[in-house]
């Protein structure tokens, strides 16, 4: 006990520093975690989360009987798979090409400009998209399609184009960010490896294949695993704000996050909305932990735990 008292006397200011963060995390993160029990109750506003009667897995049963459940899970998974695959391939390719550029000023400029879309909010993105896609005066209908003599397209009422539009916007916004991750790794590759390759007579393509790509391998694996850990999450802004909450598009824009929001705020279906949210949290948790356990096997320095 004496040593405990002694320690406390020496370290109490450091413990005191933790207090604001501990309180904030408790409120912002831990109370809502306890609140997931709402998915197992028949919520009514007067009794609140902790007073409403239990109802077992009823909310989940109702949710998974609907077609919505299949659609939102399918959309969330498929969009994420395409974002991860295409996003990684393009980011690695662009990072390699950027690294090959000799002129330092140009290099810096390209990197700076390509990151710009990453810095703006999805609300702004939705206005930019509207400038191109508006059916009455958008750039594509009024300038491009008109010049080709094609009929204007009612973009916000035609679902078949949106898988492409959403992928393009996601890549456009995220390319600079992802590219920097890989470019930073390339910059860290030992230069003597390239010198040795040149001595061995390797041309540029052979250098990329035998030095750069192997050097990127573990970063690619780690970032992909991390992304797979988040495959049940989606960017609410991209799927709700950018399609402008358009009803006819819901079949291709509904993800778990937009479903939870719509259930909570618009259709007032808190039971199914919270069931979908809890399903997302729990599957997401399992995936993140699994992904990190694998990452730890690949490279223990990069894993979260």
């Amino acid at each position: 006990m004496k040593t405990f008292g002694k320690r406390l006397k020496r370290f109490w200011p450091l413990y005191l520093m933790f207090v604001p963060g501990v309180v904030y995390l408790f409120i912002n993160c831990y109370i809502p975690m306890a609140g997931i029990q709402i998915a197992f109750r028949q919520y009514n506003a007067r009794e609140g989360i902790y007073g409403s009667p239990w109802c077992g897995f009823q909310n989940f049963e109702f949710l998974f009987k609907t077609k919505d459940a299949f659609i939102m899970i399918r959309n969330t998974l498929l969009y994420n798979l395409v974002f991860i695959t295409l996003g990684t391939v393009l980011a690695v390719a662009v990072a390699i090409i950027l690294n090959e550029i000799r002129n330092h000023l140009a290099k810096q400029l390209y990197q700076t400009v390509i990151l710009i879309p990453y810095l703006i909010s999805m609300v702004i993105v939705s206005y930019l998209a509207f400038a191109f896609l508006s059916s009455s005066n958008g750039y594509i209908n009024n300038s491009l399609l008109a010049a080709l003599g094609a009929n204007p397209i009612d973009w916000y009422n035609t679902p078949k184009y949106w898988p492409f539009i959403l992928v393009i916007i996601n890549i456009w916004k995220g390319l600079g960010y992802n590219m920097i991750l890989y470019y930073a790794t390339i910059c860290g590759i030992d230069h003597t490896l390239y010198e040795a390759a040149v001595v061995d007579g390797a041309n540029r393509w052979q250098q990329i294949r035998n030095v750069t790509l192997p050097g990127l391998k573990s970063t690619i694996i780690i970032l992909t695993l991390m992304a797979l850990g988040g495959i049940f999450r989606s960017d609410f802004g991209l799927f709700y704000q950018v399609p402008q909450n358009s009803g006819p598009l819901i079949g291709v824009t509904q993800t778990i996050d937009t479903y939870v929001y719509r259930g909570l705020m618009q259709t007032n279906n808190i039971g199914m909305s919270s069931a979908a949210g809890v399903y997302q949290s729990i599957v997401g948790f399992v995936l993140v932990v699994t992904a990190n356990l694998i990452v730890r096997k690949v490279d223990s320095d990069s894993s979260l735990f």
Binding site: L25, I27, C29, P32, G35, V260, S281, G284, V288, V289
Partner: peptide, 23 residues
């Protein structure tokens, strides 16, 4: 305590109800 908040989250519904009804 810090790290666990990156792995698991209560999601929108419980957070929304807490911020609006408790706070």
């Amino acid at each position: 305590y810090l790290f666990f908040t990156m792995l698991f989250s209560g999601g929108l519904v419980p957070s929304y109800l807490m911020w609006t009804q408790t706070f």
